[in-house]
Amino acid sequence: MQLTSYLALSAILFSIGLYGVLTKRNAVIVLFCIELMLNAANLNFVAFSKFGLFPGLTGQVFTLFTITIAAAEAAVGIAILIALYRNVQSAEADRYDSMKG
C-alpha cells in the first residue's frame, strides 16, 4: 500500500472540508468542516509516521496533541457560536458581517 494513496485520501477530505467552510451558511456546519480538515491533516501525520522516510512514533504523538487541540477548539468554537447567536439571533455565517468596512 502506497503512501500516496493515504495522502490523496487526506487531500480529498481536506478539499471537501475546505469547500464546506467556503460555502456553507450554517456556522455549525462550518465548524464541522473545520474538524474534517483537521482530521485530514491528522491522517497525513499518521501515514507519514508509518511510511515516511524515518518511520517512528513522533507522528502519532503529534496526532494525539492535535486531537487534544481540536477538542479544545471545538469547545471554544461552540461557545463563541452560542455567544454570537445570542447577539445576532442567527447561526448563519453570512449574517456575521460586522467586519464590513
Partner: peptide, 29 residues
C-alpha cells in the same frame, strides 16, 4: 496504519465527544 490507540481516541473524541458537542450546538441555535 498501525495506530490502534489513535483509532480508539478518534472514536472516543471525534465520533463521541465532538459530535455530541456539535449536536448540542445545533440544538441550542
Amino acid at each position: 496504519l498501525n495506530a490502534p490507540f489513535l483509532a480508539v481516541i478518534q472514536v472516543l473524541i471525534y465520533t463521541g465527544a465532538i459530535s455530541i458537542l456539535m449536536l448540542f450546538g445545533i440544538m441550542l441555535t
